[in-house]
Amino acid sequence: MPIERNFFKAVFTFITRQQSLSMLFILLIMWVVLAFLSPYFLTINNIFEITLQSAVIALIAAGESFVIFSGGIDLSVGSVFAFSAIIGGLGLMATQNIFVSLLASLGGGLFAGFCNGAAIVKLKIPPFVATLGMMGIARGLALILSRGIPIYGLPREYMWIGQGRVFGIVPVPTIIVLILFTVMFFILRNTRFGRFTYALGSNAEATRLSGVKIPPVMLGIYMISGAFAAVAAVIESARLGTMQPASGSGYELLAIGSVFIGGASIYGGEGNIFASLIGALIVTTIRNGLNILGVSAFYQYVVNGLIIIFAVAADQSRRAR
């Protein structure tokens, strides 16, 4: 029946053109396969478990999305994650006030992002190098400020951010993710700042010659990235009940991978932030699946590395067509 064949062909080309859709498709297939492999997988609890586990990576990926859409890259998010966790922990120890602690974390993330942006704009360093430097600096500061010792003894209210459930079932981090992604989606789509973010990634010089002031946009982009690393750090600290100076290492790999899996171009100028969320879900599903199947955690690094390479390879071949 030719009509049906044409229909499937059309669907297929649509899916391959839209990497984000094809990734959603892949995510669903993974869930179905895992459900067959393990009776534990497709339970409501485990699905929420995945959204809970993916919250941290998804939030870092949200900030990283802005950077990658603008044609840059932020390697420092894993270290800024630890830095803002420790700053928040110290704030908490000093004042015993949760809000002070949250503001301190957020401030730490924003400050690190500001430094990244300033180095790129003022010192004219490529983002790769500026954020590579910050990766070392922020990690070092986290270790220095905490003297290398994890902070324990978080109040119950703080831990609610990471462990609480609304209506007894939906995890608080999942709700935070949905709200923040929606807000960021509208910022990218419906504000000048969002428009300039894509424009910068597509052609920075033409953007400048359109009378756009580049430095504030650049600062904003990297501050958003830092802020999201901080929010992610708060959630993980609350979940684990501790702030660790060594936490977040390797998270930049997972976050960058999530954005690329979502189909963003490594050259910038295009991408969808919800696609990055799907990317984060895929990364987490793979980890979760490997856990359920009893595969050693060490293999997960290898798998994550391979995912990044193949996600970008898929993007390149799409571009070559």
């Binding site: 000048r192 428009r195 052609n203 100028g269």
Partner: peptide
């Protein structure tokens, strides 16, 4: 190199220099 912003749509290229005109309460 200096004129077009290649990945952006025709519409977004045209309005790139005049976005202030389409703003209401901060949103385009």
């Amino acid at each position: 190199q200096e004129g077009i912003i290649p990945e952006l749509s025709v519409m977004h290229n045209i309005t790139m220099a005049s976005l202030n005109n389409y703003k209401k309460r901060g949103f385009l």
